[in-house]
Measured scan of single mutants.
Amino acid sequence: MPSETPQAEVGPTGCPHRSGPHSAKGSLEKGSPEDKEAKEPLWIRPDAPSRCTWQLGRPASESPHHHTAPAKSPKILPDILKKIGDTPMVRINKIGKKFGLKCELLAKCEFFNAGGSVKDRISLRMIEDAERDGTLKPGDTIIEPTSGNTGIGLALAAAVRGYRCIIVMPEKMSSEKVDVLRALGAEIVRTPTNARFDSPESHVGVAWRLKNEIPNSHILDQYRNASNPLAHYDTTADEILQQCDGKLDMLVASVGTGGTITGIARKLKEKCPGCRIIGVDPEGSILAEPEELNQTEQTTYEVEGIGYDFIPTVLDRTVVDKWFKSNDEEAFTFARMLIAQEGLLCGGSAGSTVAVAVKAAQELQEGQRCVVILPDSVRNYMTKFLSDRWMLQKGFLKEEDLTEKKPWWWHLRVQELGLSAPLTVLPTITCGHTIEILREKGFDQAPVVDEAGVILGMVTLGNMLSSLLAGKVQPSDQVGKVIYKQFKQIRLTDTLGRLSHILEMDHFALVV
Rank of each mutant, 00 (worst) to 15 (best):
G139A: 02
K39L: 13
I122V: 02
L101S: 02
S199C: 10
P229S: 13
R276I: 08
C244K: 05
D179W: 07
N212W: 09
S199M: 02
E201V: 02
I166Y: 08
Y223S: 04
D179N: 04
F111V: 02
K36F: 13
L248R: 02
A207I: 02
S63E: 02
R190K: 12
N225T: 07
Q242C: 12
H22A: 05
F197M: 08
D35A: 12
A114Y: 06
H66S: 09
D198W: 07
T135W: 15
A38T: 14
G96S: 15
T150G: 06
R58S: 02
P49Y: 02
D133R: 14
Y223I: 02
T150C: 02
L230N: 06
R266V: 07
P64Y: 02
A226F: 02
M173A: 07
E239L: 02
T236F: 07
A159Y: 08
A114T: 15
T193N: 11
T150W: 02
P16W: 02
E201L: 09
E201A: 02
L106Y: 10
V178G: 04
I127M: 06
W208A: 14
S254F: 05
A8I: 09
D245W: 02
V180G: 02
E176V: 02
F112C: 02
E128N: 08
K97C: 05
Q243M: 09
E171L: 02
D133N: 14
V178Q: 02
C275T: 05
A48V: 10
P46V: 06
P6K: 11
P273E: 09
H17I: 15
E131G: 08
G96D: 14
P64A: 10
P12M: 08
I44S: 02
A114L: 06
A8E: 06
C165M: 07
E37M: 06
S27P: 07
T135N: 11
V10Q: 08
P41S: 10
H17M: 05
Y233Q: 06
T257V: 02
L106I: 11
P2A: 13
V204T: 11
K137L: 13
C244I: 02
E213Y: 02
S147Q: 02
G26A: 02
F99D: 02
N228R: 04
T191S: 06
T235M: 08
E9Y: 02
L248A: 07
H203V: 02
R125S: 11
K172W: 02
E144W: 02
H67D: 02
R125G: 08
V255Y: 02
K39Y: 02
C275E: 02
A24D: 08
A157T: 11
K172T: 04
E144F: 02
A159F: 02
K82S: 07
Q242L: 11
A8V: 14
P2L: 14
I76A: 08
G31M: 02
T235F: 12
P21V: 02
M126V: 02
W43P: 09
L105S: 02
A71V: 12
A48E: 06
I84F: 15
S174G: 04
E4C: 12
F197V: 02
I166F: 07
S23L: 02
H203A: 09
R196S: 09
K97P: 07
P21C: 15
V160Q: 14
P64W: 02
D129Q: 11
P16A: 08
T236G: 02
P33A: 04
K177Y: 02
L81F: 08
A158I: 06
N149S: 02
Y233A: 02
P21M: 11
H232L: 02
G205D: 02
E176Y: 02
P70Y: 02
A186L: 02
